[in-house]
Amino acid sequence: MQAPAIQLSGSYHIDGTCLFAPIDMTLPAGEWTCVLGRSGVGKSTILRLIAGVRCEGDFQGEITASDGLPLVGRVSVMAQSDLLLPWLSVLENTVLGARLRGEVPDLQRAGNLLEWVGLARHAGKKPDSLSGGMRQRTALARTLMEDRPVVLLDEPFSALDAGTRADMQDLAAGLLKDKTVLLVTHDPAEAVRLGHQIIVLTADAAQPWTPPSLPPIRDQYAPETVECQAQLLAHLRRAQ
């Protein structure tokens, strides 16, 4: 399935209070868009709107895909919390989507995905016996198993230690290649490392931020990457 670009334009209000003013945002097809901004500015709300899950407030605007088809059934979400079901094994968690749709899961493919994320030996284990990094890798395998062209990531690596986070970024960037990805993050380094496009969200606008000229996934020690991170961080601090 070809990944479409996604266009979001509109404003969002909760109980009459504006969360963000009319904004325009495009997620380019087959690329990573990283959204940053202070807490409560509406980053996760944008993600939820695209995912089509219930929101407390009122969205005035529209969300469209470049191919003109509805987004329902073409989006998968990976959250900060791994959302693994503790009574299921790693393998069963990976094929949860198929089970919930009443389909027969492709266990062969699930096994291959677990191999890719380095969990083949742990397929039979329950989430309780896994480390934080392993749990997030299981969640990544579950997201990949859905094989949706649009993937929404809501701070999925923020609870991991620095080393595991970098490993997970490498893994996700490799495995989610060619998909239209929206990554909500608080970490400028993560955005600069992974984003084809970087957007800083404020209450008034969705401002694009020019990423380094090198393509993702970028060397975090490259002078241009370091410089961009520093400037982005300074900008975020000013924006607050």
């Binding site: 939820r48 995912a51 089509g52 899950v53 219930r54 059934g73 989006v75 998968s76 979400v77 959250a79 919390s81 959302l83 079901l85 949860l96 989507g97 089970r99 919930l100 749709r101 009443g102 859905e146």
Partner: peptide, 16 residues
């Protein structure tokens, strides 16, 4: 969060 994920996956209410 789990219910939202399940619905995004296209899960039927019966299976959920």
């Amino acid at each position: 969060g789990i219910l939202d994920m399940a619905r995004t996956m296209g899960g039927t209410e019966r299976q959920i």
